[in-house]
Amino acid sequence: MAEGLSRRGHDVHVVTYHLGEDPPDATFEIHRIARIPTYSKTSAGPSYQKLAVLDPLLAFELRRLLRVHRFDVIHAHHFEGLLVADLARSKRAPPIVFDAHTLLESELPYYGLGLPRGVKRALGRRLDRWFPGRAEHVIAVTDDIRSRLIESGAAAAESVSVIPNGVESDVFAAPRPPRLRNGQPRRLIFTGNLAPYQGIDFMLDAFRVLRQQRDDVRLTIATEDSFTPYEQTAIDMGIRSFIDVHEVDFSRVPELLGEAEIALNPRVDCDGLPQKLLNYMAAGRPVVSFAGSAKHLTDGRHGTVVEDRDVEGFARAIDDLLSDSAWAHGLGTAGRTMVRNELSWEATAARVEALYHRVV
């Protein structure tokens, strides 16, 4: 998003945490908070230290920049971005555009925080209703999010626009039909974090079922997270020796996707748009996905959509694609064409730019 907007001639500043490295060819300015030695968590989700220490530091840094620069808009990414923007701005600060990628009612229960699941869901529901009103306008990445925000009274219909995420299509090589060799395993892939909401348990169970039907498949998991929480489950299922876990950052994901035949999206509860799904499609990989997170994925056109939590159906869909490589390749090619034509970051940046002109 930042690159897309800067390429359109805008002066973009990104205020973020101390973690990570600045891209060497960035076309926008990056401002990081001071390094916090006691915080190195890069996995998804909130923590008490993040809320009590890191987010206030972000707010201080944003407030400093607001005194130095004359910004036209604050683009707040996700709920923590909105919290930071709201804490930092003064009465004369520019309008806030809140970029809502999910709803807390559905996501917050999956994180620890030492609270019962029901309490976290109720807290998330309350925050979903109160928080968006702190912004002048809301970008919802899906129609589902927009509808729920309007129905709950969190935002007026005219204050919520749907603009989906984009994808960096150019980093993914054009797909080629798989060359199958005797003795070579058929490779499946999952990429992304291993947070509980991702449905990793469902995926492992489906892989177990698939291994009972055919012994030529392996599963690649490309993630920055540790697989430790799932090690014993995979061992108990008898599938651990057929899983290759690569703890890598995004730079290795295109290569690993290029080595796989089918990409897996086992998440069942998702109001937003899983970025991995767009990456899969940009890489030209046919996707097997549960229905709850199959945004922009048309069953039988870009992949296969399976009823939520139907592990047997998930395994069967993978087997069907492996059994017809030409069909699978056609689905992947169609998905790649769709995201390149409709969901590039350039197209997303143009839509966001038009929204800014309406808000400012």
Rank of each mutant, 00 (worst) to 15 (best):
F227I: 14
A34D: 14
P56V: 03
A317I: 08
V15E: 00
R148V: 08
A154Q: 01
V97P: 08
G118V: 05
N265Q: 14
G133F: 05
M203Q: 12
R340Q: 11
M338D: 15
V306K: 02
D215M: 11
R179E: 15
S226T: 12
L115R: 01
L87R: 11
L65N: 06
L108K: 00
A206Y: 13
S161N: 00
R148M: 10
P254H: 07
V311N: 04
P46C: 00
A135F: 07
T220A: 13
K120F: 00
T220S: 14
S325E: 10
I96R: 05
D299L: 08
G133D: 03
P24W: 00
I262V: 15
E247F: 04
P185W: 11
I189H: 12
A85C: 04
S289Q: 03
F60P: 00
R117P: 02
V15K: 03
V306C: 13
V97M: 03
F314N: 10
S251H: 14
A234W: 02
V14M: 09
V288G: 00
R117Q: 14
R211F: 03
V68W: 12
G313C: 07
L256E: 07
L127T: 14
V53C: 00
V68Q: 15
I243K: 10
D299N: 14
I221N: 05
G133A: 03
D128F: 08
H18W: 09
T38W: 10
R89C: 03
H69W: 10
T42D: 04
S344A: 10
V14H: 02
N193C: 07
H10L: 15
D324L: 06
V73C: 12
E29G: 13
F28P: 08
L82M: 10
Q212R: 15
I221F: 00
P254G: 11
A157Q: 13
Q212A: 15
T38D: 13
L104K: 02
A282W: 05
G284Q: 13
E307S: 07
Y356T: 06
L194W: 11
R63N: 09
R252M: 09
V209W: 04
D25V: 08
Q198G: 04
D244K: 06
G272R: 06
M281Q: 10
V248I: 15
R309Y: 14
H302N: 02
R358G: 05
R208C: 08
F28H: 03
R63H: 13
R316M: 06
F172I: 04
R148D: 11
E353G: 05
A2V: 09
